[in-house]
Design a protein around this nucleic acid. Structure first.
Lengths: 243, 243
DNA sequence: TAGTGGTCTAGACCACGCT
DNA sequence: GCGTGGTCTAGACCACTAA
């Protein structure tokens, strides 16, 4: 068959088929549990090969819109847990996107043998040397975020020789150390005295705390706890099926 | 060439190639900016067709590990904004996974013409009728989460005839209304008097507030604000490249 | 056991963007 | 120009599983 890659429309065949099927589902015309046409039939309907349809179906599965069972067919999925994509930006970018001048100040930097709390935060099995950094990110004249970070020196030897006076540990680590996975937790706390002082807040003010634990290929790399003052900071996440 | 789908290993060819390349990247052997072999060369190296390699490359692009430029080739991406997947579970499941008995109580349910605040929360362009629901989810004997929800009756007519006494609006909407996208925001607040009373908290206690705005195909469906007491609730998110 | 999805091939043409 | 990725085909075999 002659290939006319210039699709009869504007985008690729994939996108057109994908959009069609997504449309059927989100409009409710194909409710949860409805069985979609078989790959062979869709291929015939769109006049394309089965593999093209298969690719689309793969995307639909990944986005959670459909479920597929061999021998039975493909079905519109029951919507269940929503999963949203949380974008975690660099703090500097975050501040600058608010049209404020970004400031960074190192508050403390100490090296020690990891204690029980350090090992818990990093998820260490046995004690190693850790670097403990506290620093403050500011937006214009105001404190923006307090960062308390632990770096596992067993994984990041070169951090021992870096002062972190000019460059924040976040971007430095990102450029320096390959990492494989991360886990985030978000909670609300009342600011403790020391935090409140550094963030120039009244004591017991509600703060948003984002804690991120990062692993490299060979073990824990770093744990960072970012404390954002009051309700000034908002974390957002988007969900869109088939993204 | 004879097809031996029984892969020389344990999984599919895809997975093997994907794992190999991911390994090169996360181990740091291929640092950011490094150019990967061309598709043709990888295909030759693995003794497979170019399309198989192409599929893998597509996954690597989607997971943000590489960037591809025509004529230049494929390059290991500079790690930038981290994006994590936030799983937003049903509150009932959340409570039950803590081995606590789930309880639900409707506190108020009123219908009105949307005021300015309603329109802001729902993102309405012009006024419609809205259903305003306040309810409480509990875990064992304790309040777990306060839910304040608006439902756009122009989009969800059938909600007007439902009492929400036995069934919480969240699961009801999930089953009843197809939706296309959602946006979440998370922030820390100090509990106001009314919230503190319902959640049985001392006033001004720090609370985590998750607000979710949901759109259907034809417009705003619902806005829900979930207030979790104190630092008892933690939202978690996972990141794993190439997931 | 037969139907369905899962995977793969060995080609092909096209568009884009370096050089 | 020409090399690279982007897309697509018309087959094929296999594994799984529901009937």
């Amino acid at each position: 068959m002659r290939k006319d890659t210039a699709i009869s429309g504007d985008t690729t065949l994939h996108s057109r088929i994908l959009a069609d099927i997504e449309g059927q589902i989100v409009s409710g015309e194909w409710p949860p549990g409805h069985r979609l046409p078989f790959e062979v039939d869709l291929a015939a309907q769109y006049g394309c090969s089965r593999m093209t349809v298969n690719k689309v179906m793969g995307q639909l599965v990944r986005s959670g819109l459909i479920e597929r069972r061999k021998k039975s067919g493909s079905f519109v999925a029951q919507p269940k847990a929503q999963s949203a994509v949380l974008e975690i930006h660099d703090i500097k970018d975050e501040v600058q996107s608010l049209k404020l001048t970004y400031g960074y100040a190192l508050i403390s930097r100490t090296t020690r043998r990891s204690d029980a709390e350090d090992m818990r935060r990093l998820g260490l099995a046995k004690a190693t040397d850790v670097l403990d950094i506290t620093c403050l990110h500011s937006a214009g004249p105001d404190p923006f975020c307090l960062e308390k970070r632990l770096i596992n020196l067993a994984m990041v030897q070169q951090a021992a020789g870096f002062d972190f006076i000019e460059i924040a540990p976040g971007p430095w680590l990102l450029a320096e150390v390959p990492w494989t996975s991360a886990q985030h937790s978000i909670q609300a706390i009342s600011a403790e005295k020391e935090e409140a002082r550094l963030l120039r807040l009244p004591p017991h003010q509600a703060c948003l705390v984002i804690e991120r634990q990062t692993w490299g290929q060979d073990g824990p790399v770093t744990n960072v706890r970012l404390t954002y003052p009051g309700s000034r900071h908002v974390v957002t996440a988007q969900f869109k099926p088939g993204g």
